[in-house]
Design a protein around this nucleic acid. Structure first.
Lengths: 231, 231
DNA sequence: ATTAACACTTACAGTTGTTGTAAGGTTTGT
DNA sequence: ACAAACCTTACAACAACTGTAAGTGTTAAT
């Protein structure tokens, strides 16, 4: 093991069983926790729910294009993505990098090079702001800063929690109870209209930067972030 | 020009005049502002004062090792560093990446690949927390968070300004007037002991996370961050 | 149309964190 | 010993955030 103790989880998206096992072997020897995902099943959901520190992605998937996975993951702010492929054409590399891949290695690749690149990417991402993208605005989840155009405003804790939940679920509806749990899950009692108050406050804040009517009320169910159309 | 308007500045550290001109040509066509620095002169100071969006570094510098530059820049939190070199040995790549290089390309390198990698790195760094390193503690300058060991505490605005100024100047002394300017430069009048009060508060905060006696008073001059010995 | 459930808005007050002021104590160098 | 420089502490003002409360508006089913 080269790099001290690791508890980082790496997801391998690769259908070739032989290659997959070899990669898994290399990475586990290095101390990483490894999860293998096939392009059959439901790769996107599986990757998201694994919440890995890095995604090792093959481009030559029989079922689904690696490019599509790349694009989809990046839209959700998930990464880093290291593409490891036998396609050594420059145009593939440019395409993958353009879609959001963070590094591009061609097979055969020396294990040490692979490990070095993986470490690099994981370290880079550890120091990154996670930027959630809603199309016409972005949110720095960690710092609770909302960017819209050239402006940026800082959100309060509650505002951040709500908009993050809405954005991550978008375009799905977020149930009232979910928001209650996120915000006051540990409190024994809060006034029942507290969520409405906080929704009003968030809406007013969004209004202030030109983002009007972006939170829709689903009567009896919850709230939904609309517009921006990143999907 | 591939990637829209750019005003990013790239510093090329390369002594071979022919290669340098070629690179400069490619980058400027792409819309980047380019500054060339030779390893003769004072490369480190020149790079720092240029404050580039990216450093394009050759390893084969006759005067000074590219590795040394790499290490020195990273200690100061300056980056990203893209190494472009004719040394195509794996051990050189591993060494460079280990010292802090963010990408490693070997010549000859297709201009489009170079540009793609440059764009990638600049974009990554734009979303990064700038982490200032004092050896035994780190500071996220943007979010005003101080990391020491596994703990992290958030600093107040004033605390952040002071510790950042001290850290960036370290191990030099920061003059009282400089701090006054940073903190209350726009105010017409503040009490004369206000700086002392804020130094006390910062010291107490640092004490709270085990960082005692790290700010030395230079009587009549200013303050100095000591210990940590990163240099 | 009526009604009850649901949602929205506004004002108020408690809490917390930050900051400048003031007053008094301590250290330092000569 | 003495004065300048520095440190510490307490206090109050201020701003931001948040929950409560009360009243208003909206929706959908009867």
């Amino acid at each position: 093991m080269i790099g001290g103790e690791c508890v980082e989880k790496i997801v391998i998206v690769e259908d070739d069983v032989f290659l997959r096992d070899e990669l898994q072997n290399i990475l586990e020897k290095e101390g990483y926790s490894v999860e293998c995902i096939s392009s059959f099943d439901t790769p996107l959901e599986d990757i998201v729910s694994a919440s890995p520190s890095l995604i090792l992605l093959d481009l030559n998937l029989p079922k689904l294009s690696g490019f599509d996975i790349c694009r989809a993951l990046k839209a959700k702010g998930i990464g880093p993505i290291l593409v490891l492929t036998s396609r050594n054409q420059l145009r593939d590399e440019l395409h993958a990098l353009g879609l959001g891949a963070d590094d591009y290695l061609t097979k055969p690749c020396h294990p040490k090079r692979l490990i070095a690149r993986i470490q690099k990417l994981i370290h880079l991402y550890a120091n990154m702001h996670v930027m959630l993208d809603a199309g016409d605005f972005q949110i720095d989840e960690m710092a609770n800063i909302l960017y819209v155009g050239k402006d940026s405003i800082s959100l309060s804790e509650n505002e951040g929690i709500i908009i993050n939940a809405l954005l991550k679920a978008s375009p799905s509806v977020v149930k009232k109870e979910e928001l209650f749990n996120l915000l006051w899950g540990s409190s024994d009692y809060v006034d029942e209209n507290i969520l409405q108050v906080n929704m009003t406050r968030l809406r007013k804040t969004l209004d202030g930067v030109g983002l009007s009517n972006r939170i829709k009320t689903i009567r009896g169910i919850g709230y939904q972030l609309i517009g921006g159309d990143i999907q």
